[in-house]
Write a protein that binds this DNA or RNA. Structure first.
Length: 840
RNA sequence: GCCGAAGUGGCGAAAUUGGCAGACGCACUGGACUCAAAAUCCAGCGGAUCUUGCAUCCAUGUGGGUUCGACUCCCACCUUCGGCACCA
């Protein structure tokens, strides 16, 4: 479609983007004269091009930033690049382009795309995490964590992605697949670096209460992920040895029903236990088979397999000797890697016991039906009361959990414990394009941290990715000397997980060039926490959990003074087309560049904001875009029309004490109602869709309004209405509104368009006049038995009794054969007349 | 299985201390303008019924309940989406 019929968006948008940039309108000088507002959107990975998801994210943030600025805040609104990561290496592999070059080109292009959207960033604060100025501080922080015992290296079974050729954190494994390439993740035993996030598990839970305005589902996802459960650890001694097997259970009430013990195949003590026994080889074979992570298709369907160890354990509560088994249904990574099996009251144990002919013993009796171990066909997992449990018989099972735990603590058989699903954060990556881990391995001194003054450890450039090289293949990088003893030593060649980069970047924007510290402590005291954070739900656990963890650690190290980084979180919905998420494979991608070229950025922005509230998914509609384009043209035309006639120069606001009647009064009221609605819709819930709808209504009113060129009242209400439209719409459609503002209203301020103050974004946000929207009359709905039967219009000062009478009179025909039982009256809204058939 | 969110016209959606369901927009239909089209402007637009009236009835996933009155509150259920999941 050609734009010859519409307003000249291209010229207007170029003009104002240039104006904003040249005048540095959005560059924060931090005069600290106004209350601060830190508005932040999740920075993008520079993958090559901006997609619609980014556009939605950044447009929402931009409207908030512009709105808050006009509302009177000093707004910090920065942007940067999450620039380390695997796609750069894949590009190097495929195209032979160096990751640094590829990343740099992408940043350059994407930045131009963001500028074309008219986003109000302070580009003087731009950061790219692949710059040594930035990742130096990743290294510095790593060393601080190390000093404080929050980083450690250990041998562990870790998640390995064959395709990405690297390990992954638990958070990066989604349903058994790599989060990036969906390859089935394998288990591998490696010596790796971990951040001790588990030390903060409780605070990550507890301090959720500070997150006043986070979506419930994000909070619950994090709670879920951390997976705190209260239970009891019970010591089972291995018969005829001094070895203790600790089992974790949340059902201590069933301890008397334990008929066997099960160990995970990876249980460390196993080797020792089975050594020299008859079945040693068979057991070893079994362990071998199940130590590798199984492909997780449908866990329910995986057959439970096990093998008897030949050993017995002693149940501490009754000294019973029960067999010890190894089985694939017990996981080493949860609890202690060992369980007590209670087949009568746990379905998994029940199935396993049935398969291998192990006994079951009923210890919880159902209050509803008489159960017996012989006849039950599935485990009874509900609450009941205890049986076969010695002194605890007849205790309700819920109470028994605590009673038995306390008793065991007293008898030194076990203890109450807390268990978490959360694991420490594995941060090593066997990749090139990331932050080098600042550790040196010295044959004499062991692991030696790189001294602070030697930072940054820069990434060497001469790595041939196409030949599969990594840092380990660069001798100049690897070979070094020990900072402690000066002998030959080798550098760590793993790099850090890129989620380290994004765990603290929001603090760096505040003082991006700070040289002796990652953050300027004084400045962060002022600017943190982020007042509004906006991003996709896909980071509900990953980035948002890590960033919360980092903030807490940095606060503990005295680097930050807040416990939580993001006070309010808005997770915007996906952009979908034809019912599915936009993706290349589905062929339903809409390219932002094309749409901007066709309609301009303002139309794209308006459509995205209008189509649905930000937290919901947005269905892309070409016709909907067309509609937004039409609306902006409608605005442009009506303002231009009056501007050309010279009727509305200057501001309409501020003129008071005009007695308005009829249409003038109506338009005046409509203007102020719109100001109220738009302000409230944006302020409380960021519901731009309804805000735009009410501006549309006002525009419709203006079109209907009969203007009288020689009448002061008419000039006043029209000016005021048009000015309100331009100002209220400006955060959403900034270019067009700047243009119309300049064309019509700037003059009133005694400014010329060339002075810096002439930007519409230096205008204060409009305030509505309560007098203007005061209703003098109210439409009262008359209901009979809750059904609408009529309407009357009355002055607001008419008393209740009078309204009831008017209502009765209005509908007396309709109720003449009925008896009035009761009349309910809601002031200014309705009268409900309750009637029953006349009694004969 | 557990946890969470959501179900409203042909479509995107509005409406919450319980008070006219469907604002606004899209699509569609009709009219004006035009030689014609596009653009624009105006009007109509949940369903059914008849007695075409500012008429009556039905309608916010389903079934109950509370209430003068329920999209909104309570109970049960269904469906969809998301998260977690042999978690002991």
């Amino acid at each position: 479609m050609s734009n010859q019929e519409g307003y000249p968006f291209e010229q207007i948008e170029t003009k104002w983007q240039k104006f904003w940039e040249e005048k540095g309108i959005f560059n924060l000088t931090s005069a600290k004269k106004k209350p601060k507002y830190y508005c932040l959107e999740m920075f993008p990975y520079p993958s090559g091009r901006i997609h619609m998801g980014h556009v939605r994210n950044y447009v929402i943030g931009d409207v908030i930033a512009r709105f808050k600025r006009m509302f009177g805040y000093e707004v910090l609104h920065p942007m940067g690049w999450d620039a380390f990561g695997l796609p750069a290496e894949n590009a190097a592999l495929e195209k032979g382009i160096h990751p640094a070059k590829w990343t740099g080109q992408n940043i350059e292009y994407m930045k131009s795309q963001l500028k074309k959207l008219g986003l109000s960033y302070d580009w003087t604060r731009e950061i790219a995490t692949c710059s040594p100025d930035y990742y130096k501080w990743n290294q510095w922080l790593f060393l601080k964590f190390y000093e404080n015992g929050l980083v450690y290296k250990k041998q562990a079974e870790v998640n390995w992605c064959e395709k990405c050729q690297t390990v992954l954190a638990n958070e990066q494994v989604e349903a058994g697949l790599c989060w990036r390439c969906s390859t089935v993740v394998k288990s591998k035993k490696l010596d790796q670096w971990f951040f001790k996030i588990t030390a903060y598990a409780d605070r990550l839970l507890e301090e959720q209460k500070l997150l006043k305005d986070w979506p419930e589902r994000v909070l619950s996802m994090q709670i879920n992920w951390i997976g705190k459960s209260f239970g009891t650890e019970i010591d089972f001694r291995v018969a005829d040895t001094d070895e203790i097997i600790k089992v974790f259970t949340t059902r201590a009430d069933t301890i008397f029903g334990a008929t066997y013990v099960v160990l995970a195949p990876q249980y460390p003590l196993l080797e020792k236990l089975i050594k020299g026994t008859q079945q040693e080889n068979k057991i070893k074979e079994f362990i071998e088979r199940y130590t590798v992570r199984q492909d997780l298709e449908d866990i329910e369907k995986i057959e439970k397999e096990g093998i008897f160890t030949g050993k017995y354990a002693i149940n501490p509560v009754n000294n019973e000797k029960i067999p010890m088994w190894i089985a694939n249904y017990v996981l080493m990574e949860y609890g202690t890697g060992a369980i007590m099996a209670v087949p009568a009251h746990d379905q998994r144990d029940f199935e396993f016991a049935a398969k291998y002919g192990l006994p079951k013993r009923l210890v919880i009796q159902s209050p509803l039906e008489e159960l017996s171990a012989q006849t039950m066909t599935y485990a009874f997992e509900d609450e009941g009361f205890l049986v076969n449990s010695e002194q605890f018989d007849n205790t309700p099972s819920k109470e028994a959990i605590e009673a038995i735990s306390l008793w065991m603590e007293k008898e030194k058989m076990g203890r109450r414990t807390v268990n978490y699903r959360l694991k420490d954060w594995l941060v090593s990556r066997q990749r090139y394009w990331g932050t080098p881990i600042p550790i040196i391995y010295c044959p004499d001194c062991g692991k030696v941290p790189v001294p602070e003054q030697d930072l940054p450890i820069e990434l060497p450039e001469n790595v041939d990715i196409q030949k599969g090289q990594t840092l380990a293949d660069v001798p100049e990088f690897v070979n070094t000397t020990c900072p402690q003893c000066g002998h030959q030593a080798k550098r760590e060649t793993d790099t850090m997980d890129t989620f380290v980069d994004s765990s603290w970047y929001f603090s760096r924007y505040i003082s991006p060039k700070q040289e002796n510290s990652p953050v300027d402590i004084e400045e962060t005291k002022y600017w943190l926490p982020v007042d509004q954070y906006i991003g996709g739900i896909e980071h509900a656990i990953l980035h948002l959990l890590y960033a919360r963890f980092f903030t807490k650690v940095m606060a503990d190290l005295g680097l930050l003074s807040v416990k939580e980084p993001f006070l309010n979180l808005l997770t915007q919905g996906m952009v979908i087309k034809d019912g599915a998420k936009m993706s290349k494979s589905k062929g339903n991608v809409v390219d932002p560049d094309e749409i901007i070229a066709k309609y301009g950025a303002d139309t794209v922005r308006l459509f995205i904001l209008f189509a649905s509230p930000p937290e919901k998914d947005l269905e892309w509609s070409d016709q909907g875009v067309e509609g937004s384009w039409r609306f902006l043209n409608r605005v442009y035309r009506i303002v231009q029309q009056y501007a050309k006639e010279g009727k509305i120069r200057g501001s309409g606001f501020g003129i008071r004490d005009l007695e308005l009647v009829g249409d003038d009064k109506r338009l005046h009221a409509a203007t102020h109602k719109t100001i109220k609605r738009v302000t409230e819709d944006i302020e409380t819930e960021f519901h731009f869709n309804t805000a735009i709808a009410s501006i549309m209504e006002l525009v419709n009113e203006i079109y209907k309004y009969q203007f009288r060129a020689n009448d002061n009242s008419s000039i006043f209400v029209l000016k005021e209405a048009l000015e309100a439209v331009v100002l209220l719409l400006s955060p959403m459609a900034p270019h067009l509104c700047e243009e119309l503002w300049e064309a019509c209203f700037v003059e009133a301020l005694g400014k010329t368009p060339t002075t810096e103050q002439a930007s519409i974004f230096d205008q204060p946000w409009l305030k509505y006049n309560p007098e203007a929207i005061k209703e003098e009359e109210a439409v009262i709905v008359i209901q009979v038995n809750g059904k609408v039967r009529g309407k009357i219009t009355v002055a607001v000062d008419v008393v209740d009794e009078e309204i009831k009478n008017l209502a009765l009179a209005e509908i007396k025909d309709k109720i003449k054969d009925k008896q009035v039982k009761k009349i309910i009256s809601v002031p200014k809204k309705l009268v409900n007349i309750v009637v029953v058939p006349l009694q004969v």
